[in-house]
Design a protein around this nucleic acid. Structure first.
Length: 852
RNA sequence: GCGGGCGUGGCGGAACCGGUAGACGCACGGGACUUAAAAUCCCGGUCCUUAUGGAGUGUGGGUUCGAGUCCCACCGCCCGCACCA
């Protein structure tokens, strides 16, 4: 029996596609475009399973849309600046540029073995001056538009990476990359004014209807827009007013205390004269932001002894310093309304402060309503609130803000959790910030015609800190304005800056300017963006900001970069532990004689949980080894089988082998029928046998369902449908010419349906079926709607909701006919016994339920 | 603590809008072919029960002629945020 030669065929088609250049595209206003983009990889040197899944999904979409006639842009590039290159330089003495470009070459080769429909003529690397020069120009435009500025700021300092991190990059008080505890330092920083678009960024989430709800919610929470009021409380005996922010100004009559953040300037001032308070502040700090501490977080406060005056009713109330008030949000001071805020309530109970309800739940009695252990945060009518009495919460908010404004005691305002994006990094391998510090003129932008400011090649990376800062000559220059000696900015950009606009550069990757307006107008936005959910906040938010900023500067015309977003799940694998407790890689484990697992020396191995692939647990699989052993089609097919693409999937050897068997099986099925098939493009015979009609129906139905499944990213279901068609085809035994014609039709459908998923096998089979032109240029199959409906249907018959029989009925049979057939069933009569049916429910083509 | 999601055979998962639960695959068992093995092909399989029949989608209630699907409460797991005033 002959077998499909995977290696030979995969290489052959990859060459053939490249020769005709079928994935190289041009803008064509006469055709509808479709832009498919997977998140571009960091060139670490090797692709991993996450890449394999990401690019398989993207390739299915790209090839499918191509078959549907779209002009498909599907580019690839490299997110090439970043720390690992500098680490490699330190560890191995290789230059970051050399290391990076070598990695790019290696990974390009690996990706090419996957058989992706990439337009490689558009390849870009962000570390190339031809790329980052435009980023520098954008920055200068941003500065001009007041979208980038410099400020002295407390920053998160990563002592291991020796760099600044954005708030978004600090996770649990640790650097997102190094994991080191982050310190607070004050540094001059370049900052992007992302908050200028805060409103629009949050409002436009509504329009991103092809994004996962989960990601939209995460973005909304991250921006954290809240409407409320700022108001001023006099502090008795001091000539100053305390500024407080609240989202519930309507509850002001229920206020029974005010509280400051431990980091509030007033707290710090008071602490100077009070050792007790000083100790309390220290204690709050020690509580820190660690998860464990917050879990035990008990509301605690320190009574300053000072009194504040409620600006609305003149009431005196105590001023506390409380551990649950954040300096970073609002004004760092609150007024507490225990009846309507859970934290305030817990605080009030502890310090025996008044709990006075001012919002009455809909059907509650004002005379008896009390708040117990739970604050009331729902809707209702105001009471105990003077001029607000009787109003609903929203009206009360409006009215109290009005009053505050006429009294000059406050105003309505909007607060965001989002803060501006600090982009300065004290790094070598990043894009230089094109600014000059002149002793006479101050900060002077590098004129655009002098761009790019390139990195020096000769750097010393042997010690931590910024190599550009200590380079002997690089930073010394002359002021572009006055010509006197000056120094360059030695900070480089956060690498999230490069990935904030690369999707736009792909539209015209070799353009003189950053982007050709005609090209970006044609191609943008990205129709389908695909990547890991780990970028749900940072990267996607930055790219959305950048797109708005670039629009404001006239680069492009869209607001949103990604019209559709799909986030894939992670790849998991079993873990293995040796007797000594060390993790073992799958390659170090084999099946022992008694069915258990043993290591290479024959010692028993403990089978661990299925976990996300990670180097630390040693449960990674190298995708290139899989492609080498089974071929790209097998790897792709298994990636798409079984698990829905947005969920985590488990990678198993048995699963890969199953996929490989399917590849061989398909080839064999086609191979065995080849000799007897009618020629390609034969016209259909006059009459077909029932068996042939059934096969046709199965095939057309498969086209219909697979199309729907691919459209909605349900690849696992599409795979199941394809298996069904394959099984039907394998079971089909043709007896006449008509049968063989139907067999060819079904086979060709099958081959075309698998084409986006297993493109090499599909091309091979297509050619063997006698077609001269490559399948890659072929349209997606179309189902004949008259063939996708069955002539007869199986209808379930229930008695009192229990299944008793099944009857075969013509499609769309009349109710009376269905009822009659159902009642005639022996099993139904038996179940009814003596009783006469009280009622019969008939749902066409589905069910008959007899109620006794 | 808040917000979101999920819970279906040995496993991954199907099940459109409330209408035959378990498609399809993996693993497993049996058989055919083979000197033998691999490969391949055929058959089987939620559980209890003797066929009949009964139970069954995390648990307990409810709505309905009918619930994996809707509602309420609870249990468990996962993700996000970190007291956001």
């Amino acid at each position: 029996m002959s077998r499909y030669n995977v290696k030979e065929n995969e290489a052959r088609w990859q060459r053939a596609w490249e020769e005709v250049g079928c994935f190289e595209v041009e803008a064509d206003p006469a055709r509808e475009k479709y832009y498919v983009l997977e998140m571009f990889p960091y060139p670490s040197g090797r692709i991993h399973m996450g890449h394999l899944r990401n690019y398989t999904i993207g390739d299915v979409v790209a090839r499918y849309k191509m078959a549907q006639g779209f002009n498909v842009l599907h580019p690839m590039g490299w997110d090439a600046f970043g720390l690992p290159a500098e680490n490699a330089a330190m560890d191995r003495g290789v230059h970051p540029a050399e290391w990076t470009y070598a990695n790019i070459d290696a990974m390009r080769e690996q990706l090419k073995t996957m058989g992706l429909s990439i337009d490689w003529s558009r390849e870009i690397a962000t570390c190339h001056p031809g790329y980052y020069r435009h980023e520098q120009a954008m920055f200068l435009d941003f500065v001009e538009q007041n979208l980038a500025y410099r400020k002295e700021a407390w920053v998160n300092w990563d002592p291991v990476d020796q760099t600044v991190l954005a708030n978004e990059q600090v996770i649990d008080g640790r650097g997102w990359r190094s994991g080191a505890l982050v310190e607070q330092r004050k540094l001059p920083q370049w900052v992007f004014r992302i908050t200028a678009f805060a409103d629009d960024l949050v409002d436009a989430i509504e329009s991103l209807d092809r994004w996962p709800d989960k990601v939209r919610l995460m973005q909304r929470n991250w921006i954290g827009r809240s409407e409320g009021a700022r108001m001023f409380f006099e502090i008795e005996g001091r000539g100053e007013r305390l500024e407080v922010f609240s989202t519930r100004p309507d509850t002001i009559f229920g206020a029974s205390f005010c509280a400051l953040s431990p980091h509030h300037p007033l707290s710090e001032e008071l602490a100077e004269r009070s050792p007790d308070l000083h100790a309390f502040l220290k204690e709050c700090e020690r509580l820190g932001t660690s998860e464990e501490a917050i879990e035990r977080a008990e509301k605690r406060g320190y009574d300053t002894g000072l009194k504040c005056i409620n600006p609305i009713n003149g009431e005196r109330m105590p001023l506390y310093i409380a551990n649950f008030v954040l300096m970073e949000y609002g004004t760092g001071a609150i007024f507490g309304v225990p009846a309507h805020d859970q934290r305030d309530l817990e605080f009030a109970r502890k310090y025996e402060l008044a709990v006075r309800p001012v919002v009455l739940p809909p059907s509650a009695d004002p005379a008896s309503f009390e708040v117990g252990d739970e604050a009331y945060v729902g809707p209702g009518a105001l009471f105990n609130s003077d001029f607000l009495d009787g109003l609903d919460v929203d009206s009360a908010k409006r009215k109290i803000i009005e009053r505050l404004e006429t009294l000059g005691a406050g105003e309505g305002t909007v607060q965001y959790r989002l803060r501006d994006w600090g982009v300065s990094r004290q790094r070598y391998w990043g894009c230089p910030i094109p600014m000059v510090h002149c002793p006479d003129c101050g900060l002077v932008p590098v004129p655009k015609e002098q761009l790019p400011v390139t990195l020096p090649d000769d750097v010393d990376l042997s010690t931590p800190g910024n190599p550009l800062e200590r380079h002997p000559t690089w930073k010394h220059t002359t002021c572009p304005k006055c010509g006197t000696a000056a120094v360059r900015e030695t900070d480089t950009f956060d690498t999230f800056v490069e990935s904030s606009w690369y999707f736009a550069r792909f539209c015209s990757p070799r353009a003189e300017g950053a982007m050709d307006r005609g090209e970006v107008d044609y191609w943008l936005p990205v129709d389908q963006y695909i990547g890991g959910v780990e970028h749900a906040v940072l990267h996607l938010l930055y790219a959305r900001f950048f797109t708005r900023a670039l629009k404001q500067c006239g680069y492009l015309g869209v607001d949103e970069p990604f019209a559709g977003l799909f986030t894939q799940g992670m790849i998991c694998h079993e873990t293995y532990k040796a007797p000594d407790g060390k993790w073992l890689s799958p390659a170090e484990v084999e099946r022992g004689g008694d069915g258990g697992l043993v290591d290479l020396e024959g010692r028993a191995v403990e089978r661990g949980r299925v976990e996300k692939m990670s180097k630390s647990k040693k449960n990674t699989i190298d995708p290139t080894a899989i492609i080498e052993a089974y071929g790209a089609d097998t790897a792709r097919w298994f990636m798409l089988s079984d698990s829905p693409p947005d969920r985590d999937m488990e990678w198993t050897e048995a699963g890969v082998e199953g996929a490989y068997r399917f590849v061989q099986r398909l080839w064999r099925i086609v191979d065995e029928m080849l000799d007897d098939l009618p020629p390609a493009e034969s016209s259909p015979p006059q009459a077909l046998t029932k068996a042939a009609m059934d096969l046709r129906r199965t095939a057309h139905k498969a086209v219909e369902t697979v199309t729907g499944d691919v459209d909605s990213f349900r690849f696992n279901r599409a795979v199941a449908r394809i298996y069904e068609l394959t099984n039907a085809l394998a079971a089909f035994k043709p007896e006449d010419a008509g049968d063989r014609w139907a067999q060819r039709e079904a086979t060709e459908f099958l081959v075309r349906l698998i084409a986006p998923m297993m493109p090499h096998l599909a091309e091979t089979l297509w050619a063997r079926l006698g077609h001269g032109e490559m399948l890659v240029n072929h349209a997606w199959p179309k189902a004949d709607p008259t063939l996708t409906v069955e002539e007869s249907v199986t209808v379930a018959v229930q008695v009192n909701g229990k299944l008793r029989a099944k009857v075969e009925l013509p499609r769309d049979a009349e109710e009376a006919q269905a009822q009659e057939a159902a009642l005639a069933q022996p099993a139904v009569r038996k179940a009814l016994g003596e009783k006469a049916p009280r009622k019969v429910i008939v749902v066409k083509n589905r069910i008959v339920n007899v109620v006794a």
